[in-house]
Amino acid sequence: MKIHAPIALLTVLFMPKNPTVVTLCVLSLFTAAAVAQVQPDAKALLDSAGQKLATAQTIRLTAQHKLDPSLGYGGKIDRGPITVTLQRPNKFHAIQPAGDETREVASDGKHFVLMYPQRKHHAIEPLRTASNEEFADAVDQKIGFRPPLAELLAGNLTAEMLRNVTAAGIVGPEYVGFTRCKRLLLVQDGMTTDLWIGGKDKLPRRMKFTFTEFSGKPTWDIRIRKWEMNPAVDDSLFSKRPAADSTRVALLKSLRSTPKPIVIVP
């Protein structure tokens, strides 16, 4: 999208005498305009993934993530496994095992709990939410971060993924591991998202965020290793509470107008 329009314009300016080229350039301009919007096939692909995920009442996924050093602080938590368990309509749990820095988020629709079990500190706040989408928005608004992969697991995946997106298109077929996928590119102000969706099973396999407004364009790359639809999950997982010897810590939102782009996982 960003390349087509300038190339077409330059070609029109410098080679106006050749009618074939001019025609191609005009067509290219139309193509550029089309790419600069959400392409129908991209939306259809998101819809198919959303429909696939919406069939499951409980979802558990295991992913491996890698955060660019400029976005994190260099700890174990900047890379490694994440396990997210979601139960519709409003229960969420995520854990990132990272030894001493292990982090855990749980919500049963009534309370939000953030725990560092090894460091023995936690935060717990009342947070009533009717759906997982509402939970993600409330956490973002009140606490200052979005729960991991909340967009993918939302009831309306297409609407969540296309929020603030100015352009979306299918870049092409690509493999993630041994799975043949279609690669989607979603562009929004300050960020682009690459999403790989499996060609056969329509399950998202990889998601890469590129923060284009920061120098070096740092990335956050998440590879989803395992999807489990309707697994047996103990309901107490979502209402998990910290150990008795854990200390309660104040849960704050940054006062900075332009906070450092730290991605919280979870």
């Binding site: 953030l114 560092y116 500190h121 606490i143 810590v249 849960l251 919280i264």
Partner: peptide, 9 residues
């Protein structure tokens, strides 16, 4: 002393 700011310790 620990705080959570934007979910980060």
């Amino acid at each position: 002393y620990a705080y959570y700011i934007n979910g980060q310790a």
